[in-house]
């Protein structure tokens, strides 16, 4: 076993950072009692999702005293949580933090901040500019926050950067209600199962529940193994902690049977993307400069 994970399908209180920190610490304790080495919270778990102008009021630096108790809790169990991050240059980001041993190990700023339909994230949040895997005591991990996963380039890059576990904290609203399950849930489960199989990775889809301004978040969090099978899942709409284990042996078998990550021709992808970038931006293209 690599690690026992606790997926916290919770209902954050909108705009109440201190209250949500207390809730987080309680959930972390429950997960620790269940023997977890990692506990994962949904997107923006410290603030709630539909913030509008509250985004600025809820923004905290990584060093803020208010979130200190949660970092302290990561001495017991590794924690992934979501927050509105106030950066050193005073930009606010929709960020996910991996904390361990009382410190921030990795920060992922959501790259794709949706601003269409019911979403208005880019009105408030800056766009993250890094998609990077990172090492933990138990394995190499990549984080993608909600909409990030609607762009296959994100799990692709994380996978090529060596991630065998993809963590996807989400705040996915339930709609439409044509079938027995919300349409958004059907699409999400299809996507994470497909990613797990194509990238030969565990995928943790950790979605929140609760209602904000009439919008319901459906939960239905799921852990998918690298064969694309859902090995643990939560019910719709209710708060719950789902505990399951990630197994290196399952990763080994999956990657032996179908070594897609090994076979990936990164050089071909890179040269073709370079060509497309050069065509799109002409001679003006400088890697990393086009934001």
């Amino acid at each position: 076993m690599l690690v026992r994970v606790g997926m916290v399908q919770m209902r954050p209180v909108l705009g109440d950072v201190a209250g949500n920190v207390r809730l987080h610490v309680e959930w972390v304790e429950r997960a620790a009692e269940a023997g977890c080495g990692l506990v994962v919270f949904p997107e923006l778990s410290l603030t709630g999702y539909g913030l509008k102008d509250l985004a600025y009021d809820c923004a905290r630096t990584l060093e803020d005293e208010e979130i200190r108790p949660l970092l302290e809790a990561s001495r017991r169990v590794d924690v992934v949580f979501g927050m509105v991050e106030l950066s050193r240059d005073y930009t606010v980001y929709n960020s996910a933090v991996y904390a361990s041993g009382g410190a921030v190990v990795h920060l992922h700023r959501k790259v794709y901040v949706p601003t269409y339909g019911m979403f208005e994230e880019n009105r408030h949040f800056g766009r993250g500019k890094q998609i990077r895997a990172f090492d933990t005591a138990w394995g190499r991990v990549g984080i993608m926050v909600c909409e990030d996963a609607w762009h296959p380039s994100v799990p692709y890059v994380l996978s090529q950067d060596g991630a065998t576990v993809l963590i996807c904290p989400s705040a996915s609203p339930a709609r439409p209600v044509r079938g027995d399950r919300p349409g958004s849930q059907e699409i999400w489960h299809r996507a994470v199962r497909m990613y797990a199989q194509l990238f030969g990775a565990y995928v943790l889809f950790v979605n929140r529940v609760g209602v904000e301004d009439g919008v319901l978040f459906y939960g239905a969090s799921a852990l998918v193994d690298p064969f694309g099978e859902v090995i643990a899942s939560a019910p719709m709409f209710d708060e719950t902690l789902v505990v399951a284990e990630l197994d290196g042996e399952v990763l080994r078998r999956s990657r032996s049977l179908t070594p897609l990550a090994r076979e990936e021709q990164l050089d071909v992808t890179f040269s073709e993307l370079s060509r497309i970038m050069a065509q799109r931006y002409g001679g003006r293209w400088i890697p990393g400069a086009h934001r």
């Binding site: 909108l14 705009g15 539909g50 913030l51 509008k52 102008d53 509250l54 904000e212 301004d213 009439g214």
Partner: peptide, 8 residues
């Protein structure tokens, strides 16, 4: 440009 959620 003063836009808070109703649930605020």
């Amino acid at each position: 440009d003063f836009r808070y959620p109703r649930d605020w």
